[in-house]
Amino acid sequence: MIDLKKADINFKWEITRQEGGEGLLKCFGCSDCSASCPVRYLDDRYNPRKIIRLTLLGMKAEVLSSPFLWLCAHCHACTERCPQGIRVAEVINAIKNYAVQQGYCPEGLKVQLNLLNNSGRLYELEDFDLRKRQRMGLPEIAKKIPDVARIFQFTKIFERTAK
């Protein structure tokens, strides 16, 4: 049973203020998103409709702490089908962003963040790679892109993920 005493009425408004979360309130619960979802098809622990409905009910802790939130493959199958024109995958992503700010950031994402902070790409170009590229006749590309770390400072992303 959902205990509405624990509901946070501001939760849904918080999500609508996140990048991509705008359409959330239009949901009328038709279930087309979850019927279209390739992840839900194989694994019913993930259900986009349920996440959205729980968000609308204000079940903040339940939604944000759920490990299943991160199962969304961001494939946009739901977005294409939503009769209300909600960019469902973007709304789920907005919930993920909010979860990160609230201290529910998966370790894997933090690792990627650090990798990108170091070199600007997920896979650093090792000498071995450079030699291989040379051998194959592929052009040289920059080893490090410091601009990326600059963007991170600008958006204070480390502060946001620190919680």
């Binding site: 619960g29 038709c30 279930s31 087309d32 979850s34 019927a35 279209s36 839900r40 409709r49 089908r81 009769p83």
Partner: peptide, 21 residues
């Protein structure tokens, strides 16, 4: 109760996929 996501064809039959609310 639910909006079907798609109609497919499988083994000569039509298949309707829907999440029953």
């Amino acid at each position: 109760k639910g909006k079907p996501s798609e109609v497919m064809k499988r083994n000569g039959n039509l298949v309707v996929r829907v999440e029953d609310l």
